[in-house]
Design a protein around this nucleic acid. Sequence first.
DNA 1: TAGCAAAACGTCTTAATGACACTTAGTAAT
DNA 2: ATTACTAAGTGTCATTAAGACGTTTTGCTA
Lengths: 248, 248
Amino acid sequence: MKHNNQRKLNTGISVDCVIFGFDLEELKVLLIQRKTAQKAPDSRFSLPGDLIYNDETLDEAAIRVLKELTGLENIYLEQLGAFSALDRLSKIEDKIWLESIREQPNERVITIAYFALVNLNSFHPSPANFATSASWRPIQNVTSLAFDHHEIFESAHQQLKAKLQTQPIGFNLLPDKFTLSQLHKLYEAIVGKELDKRNFRRKMIKLDIVKKLEEKQVGVPHKPSNFYEFNQKNYQKLLKEGFDNFGF
Amino acid sequence: MKHNNQRKLNTGISVDCVIFGFDLEELKVLLIQRKTAQKAPDSRFSLPGDLIYNDETLDEAAIRVLKELTGLENIYLEQLGAFSALDRLSKIEDKIWLESIREQPNERVITIAYFALVNLNSFHPSPANFATSASWRPIQNVTSLAFDHHEIFESAHQQLKAKLQTQPIGFNLLPDKFTLSQLHKLYEAIVGKELDKRNFRRKMIKLDIVKKLEEKQVGVPHKPSNFYEFNQKNYQKLLKEGFDNFGF
DNA sequence: TAGCAAAACGTCTTAATGACACTTAGTAAT
DNA sequence: ATTACTAAGTGTCATTAAGACGTTTTGCTA
């Protein structure tokens, strides 16, 4: 990553981002891969993150990390919380790696985790940073990660699940035009269980946060699905009112 | 506060606690008062907090602050999030005060906020630290606070409201034995609106998180209220199942 | 033109919510 | 002792939401 030399790093505080994406089939996370090969099967993957600068807020730092890595801006981003275990950087494999990238590899760093939701289809990896070192991994395949990143990832996944029950944030993972089947599949992927198709549709339509478009799928070898778009206006209204009953 | 000289402070990270209490009438917050008198009507109040040590986690730091201030342990405590605005310590009145308590008053500090729920009745202020400098303030009276503490307070209040909708955390604010009227009053105080008495009772009883005791109020000039206790076991079960429908 | 595959659609039963008013148990005052 | 006062405690009905379940439709393909 390109660091501006004028700016002063805060060597005790970092941000890490759990970036979720949905490819209309599976829920995925964006992980970066260490340059040096490691023996442990999955520990070479980690969440994208960076130390913060002293002239930026945590939100700004997270936005910067996201931009540098994916080239995306204006994506859904929310603070998850701070992680401060004393041994969070002290796994032996991690230390070796840290020594190659940090000036003070033994300094204590607490990290503030963020979770982000991106629409995988509107996503064009920025070749320089991304293609070589980062990749989308199905969430089922995420077992162990570097540092305390697995704990952070699990915490993010849980929060995503919980939040979906009360707020329609799932739309951030879909393209502007989508079918109800895709939305359905997304919800099933996140909550991790089957949801009745008809009841799901009824609920979404009653909540009035989707608008039916005069456009259908073409070229599919079955009855084409209607496209819908997200109803921003009603969503905002629901956000304010708190919509208690959004559960399944 | 007594600082052990052996330990090394992390001068860039602090914790601040929003401690809620309920005196069976009103919802209150524990605020500390600066030693030096200030002209601004309320800005002399701030949230209890402290820089962290490098050999403690954030949770441990928050527990320490709480213990030092209130003498209480084992109270409900949850991380709220990190606050990192660049100007969060730069109000002029705050700077003067900071200079009197910090070695590097101009260093950037990000703070991790916690919110805590305590039962005001089982609360015995530790005379040394508490009585002189801290006091319970009704939440309506909390207008401006030092630093960015008002923002933190509001965020905590909002989270308390939101969380109450989906988890019965309110019990942490009540004594072991309480009446349904007290519980009712507490909920009204937190969500800030009237709740129908009968519907409220029905819901609590159906959720099966309260257990009726064979004990009544005595000495009240009206029909005495029955005491209840919190049903830990069912609460844990509900926590796991996620209990979608806890709204009003 | 027959077959295929996923989309679209409705009903019924059960459970939860919200609105609403009177009776009861104890204290305090006369 | 009777009366008055105060907050506690209780039930029903109408409306709305949830959960379970199978058949028809549309467009493509062979």
